[in-house]
Design a protein around this nucleic acid. Sequence first.
DNA 1: GACAATTGTTGTCGTCAACAACAATCTTCC
DNA 2: GGAAGATTGTTGTTGACGACAACAATTGTC
Lengths: 163, 163
Amino acid sequence: MTASAAQTSSRKRAGNGAARIDADEIGLDALVGHAGYAVRRFQIWIFQDFIRTLGEVDIRPTQYSVLTVIGANPGLSQMAVANRLGIERARLVHLLDSLEQRRLVKRIKSKTDRRAHALHLTAQGETALAKFKRLAAEHERNVEAKIGRENRQRLLQILADFT
Amino acid sequence: MTASAAQTSSRKRAGNGAARIDADEIGLDALVGHAGYAVRRFQIWIFQDFIRTLGEVDIRPTQYSVLTVIGANPGLSQMAVANRLGIERARLVHLLDSLEQRRLVKRIKSKTDRRAHALHLTAQGETALAKFKRLAAEHERNVEAKIGRENRQRLLQILADFT
DNA sequence: GACAATTGTTGTCGTCAACAACAATCTTCC
DNA sequence: GGAAGATTGTTGTTGACGACAACAATTGTC
């Protein structure tokens, strides 16, 4: 009826019993035409590699993005960082709590807006971030090795609008 | 020391007070060279659009992928589906519980392996999936409108290895 | 000066990846 | 044929993450 049950249903299928199919011959059907599926699988791979490569310093992608933005723009408020990175401000609170406990970031009470905090890296945070960036560059070389140099460039170009 | 605090630090910065910077002039520094950052932001956008476009039928990306694979390969075991889609088998249990409650999928005891279940769509599941696919195609057109037709094609090509 | 908006914070909820443990069952190997 | 190990589905826990709602303190506006 729906004309969707064809594809890989060749041999090797037990009547209606268990599947005797090797994992690599299971058809994805409509999924192959969906960018979201490929992007999702790729994002999982890339995050796993990032987490592994920066495992020795215990820094996750979100933490790295927060540190990088604060390092490049000292004095930002939490709202500014949250908006720039697409992180909810409620979530940034916990991220900063963790980074502040590790003495990488400090919240300084703003003198112009007593509601806000001005975010800065500590001296320790500066040197640590330098090391994180070296490891992140190593991760990026892994990405390059995985999809190819020009494909990575094309990817960055295609997705440039998403900041 | 780390030579990373430059970039957008032009005017508009209060001494060490709050940030008086518009969100669009906050520099991302090293993040712009990281494929993972762009991919992550894009993946969030694409999933939000998928969830919104398929909101009327209340189907999320993971559910759609499970239904599609079962529809194209009836009789698969839970392990086979989990491995093919990169889902943990523990997580697939809950996904199938939900889909089975909605009468879209049924677990049939395998006769060749009494540990395993053979997964099938119900008749209702078949017709429902057909509708889901139409809505998913509409979502895909949104993606195309967002990044461009040939960019989407290039993207699918670049990420084809991630299944 | 009253009223609306913003900032940081706390809390809850649901999704998701990663593990660990377990019973039932299958496979392997002696 | 039977013991030992592997596999399948299940249950449970943990932590990261996005989304929302509420709140106090403070700021901006009319």
